[in-house]
């Protein structure tokens, strides 16, 4: 199935196209440290680039998959608004993919992590001293066995308390695992080197997940904010 997938929940803009031969066409943008993510300026040019490289037009796309977070509110809206507009315009089924679940699908190379890790904890930096996290037990084939921790926003210390009983077989990945490495390592989790690709959200995994998920009408795909808005006043005083 030809799937166009993208995610703008983290600072990265990641795009993938699967189902054209065996190859997965990918493109991504990672902002320099401290720079704004720029999802609005990068997303559609990257989508156009993978379509062009694969020689595929929108009339040939069978499914669109979009990361629904959790993540930055504005990033989520840019991704979802774009996905809905494309799906609506072309009548293409849209699939909501959990950004955390996609992250958890990272397949570590055997030499990159210790043997025997059977639990994956996806952890994104939610700022304001919190993380977005979710955890799964994985089977031998590296597929999801069962959910251990449903997506939530919480303090890293609280997350550490939750994962400590899981013991030393937990792989923690994502920019939140890097940011709060100490607390999670103390709780027994293994965290790959900071520059490991395992920490990056990639739309390639969205394609893999979207292959198995149900498509829906565009407006049924909603952001997974996990947090209420701050009722801060924009009002100029």
């Amino acid at each position: 199935m030809r799937i166009v997938a993208f995610d703008t929940a983290t600072s990265a803009t990641t795009v993938a196209l699967s189902g054209v031969g065996d190859a997965v066409y990918t493109a991504r943008h990672d902002p320099l440290p401290g720079a704004r993510p720029g999802h609005a300026t990068h997303l559609l040019p990257l989508v156009a680039r993978v379509l062009e490289r694969a020689g595929v037009g929108w009339e040939e796309v069978e499914r669109i998959a979009v990361g629904v977070g959790p993540g930055t509110f504005t990033g989520l809206r840019i991704g979802i608004a774009t996905a809905r507009a494309l799906a609506r315009a072309r009548g293409i089924p849209l699939v909501a993919v959990s950004t955390l679940q996609s992250l958890a699908l990272a397949r570590p190379r055997v030499d990159a992590v210790p043997a025997g890790l059977d639990t994956v904890l996806a952890v994104l930096d939610a700022r304001r001293g919190e993380v977005f996290a979710a955890g799964w037990r994985m089977d031998e084939a590296g597929e999801f066995d069962c959910a251990l921790l449903l997506p939530r926003a919480l303090a890293p210390e609280a997350l550490a308390e939750l994962v400590a009983p899981l013991g030393p077989t937990t792989l923690a990945i994502g920019d939140g695992a890097i940011a709060f490495r100490e607390a999670l390592e103390r709780a027994g989790s293994f965290i790959p080197e900071d520059d490991s690709l395992l920490h990056r959200v990639t739309a390639t995994n969205h394609c893999r997940l979207a292959d198995r998920l149900q498509g829906s009408v565009p407006d049924d795909v909603r952001p997974d904010y996990l947090r209420a808005p701050d009722a801060e006043m924009a009002h100029r005083t």
């Binding site: 559609l44 774009t82 996905a83 507009a85 315009a89």
Partner: peptide, 17 residues
């Protein structure tokens, strides 16, 4: 900005399709 982005992302997606 956050409000404008919803309209602009939608408009760009509709037009690009």
């Amino acid at each position: 900005v956050a409000a404008l982005l919803v309209g602009v992302a939608t408009a760009k997606g509709l037009a690009a399709a």
